[in-house]
Simulated scan of single mutants.
Amino acid sequence: MGSLGIATSGVFIALAAVSPVTAIFFRCALAVPALWLLAQGTSSDGPLSRRPVMVAAIAGVLFAADGLSSTVNAAVLMLVPVGALESAALFLDENPAQL
């Protein structure tokens, strides 16, 4: 269900008539409270060293750059997990509930 929701997000961005940058900003902004609650449950032995912070910053920049790609490319690429699930169910006689 999560893959389907992510796969169709590009379509909803196009229907909302907002730029991908705006959609990504609000997607990240709405995730901050949930991430903050998750972070409160973790323990820390002090401040983070510089290396993990830099790795996280680079990952964030790359994620933002990926979000700036066209909405159509994102929608097509995000449909891959949904297509793989359907293909496994049809051609390999797999039960989707067990995947």
Rank of each mutant, 00 (worst) to 15 (best):
V55R: 15
V55S: 09
M1F: 14
P52K: 14
S3K: 02
L15E: 09
A23L: 12
I6F: 11
R51P: 02
M78H: 09
C28I: 11
N73E: 14
V76T: 06
G5W: 08
I24L: 14
A75K: 06
M54N: 11
G67R: 02
I24K: 11
S87I: 13
T71M: 12
A23I: 05
D93C: 13
L99V: 06
D45W: 14
D93K: 13
I6N: 03
D66C: 06
L85M: 07
N95V: 03
G60S: 03
D45K: 07
Q98N: 12
I13P: 03
P47E: 07
A75N: 08
L85P: 00
G83S: 08
V76M: 14
L92P: 04
V76I: 10
A84V: 09
P96F: 08
V82Q: 03
L15T: 06
D66N: 12
M54H: 12
A89L: 05
A23F: 09
S69L: 13
A57I: 04
S87E: 04
R51V: 01
N95I: 02
L92E: 01
L92R: 09
T22W: 13
P33V: 13
L77D: 04
P33R: 01
P52V: 02
C28L: 15
V72P: 04
R50C: 10
L38M: 15
V32D: 04
G67L: 01
A17C: 08
A23Y: 05
V76W: 10
S87T: 15
A75F: 07
A39V: 07
S69G: 10
G41T: 15
N73F: 13
I6Q: 02
G67V: 00
V80F: 10
F63T: 00
L92A: 08
A59M: 03
A89K: 14
N73K: 13
P81M: 06
Q40C: 04
L37H: 12
V76D: 05
F25C: 09
F91C: 13
L85W: 02
A89M: 08
G67A: 09
L85K: 01
A74N: 12
S19W: 02
P20S: 10
G60V: 00
A29G: 06
V18C: 13
R51I: 02
R50V: 14
D93Q: 11
A16G: 09
L48R: 08
G60Y: 00
A17D: 12
V55N: 09
A57P: 03
M78V: 06
G83N: 05
Q40A: 12
F12K: 01
E94C: 15
A16D: 01
A34K: 11
A57C: 05
S3N: 09
V53D: 03
G2A: 07
Q40V: 11
A64P: 01
A56N: 07
P52S: 04
I13G: 03
P96R: 14
S9Y: 09
L15A: 14
P47T: 00
S70H: 09
L99H: 08
L85H: 01
L68D: 01
A64L: 01
P96W: 09
L99K: 12
F26R: 10
P81L: 04
P33E: 01
A39N: 12
T22F: 15
V76N: 11
G10N: 14
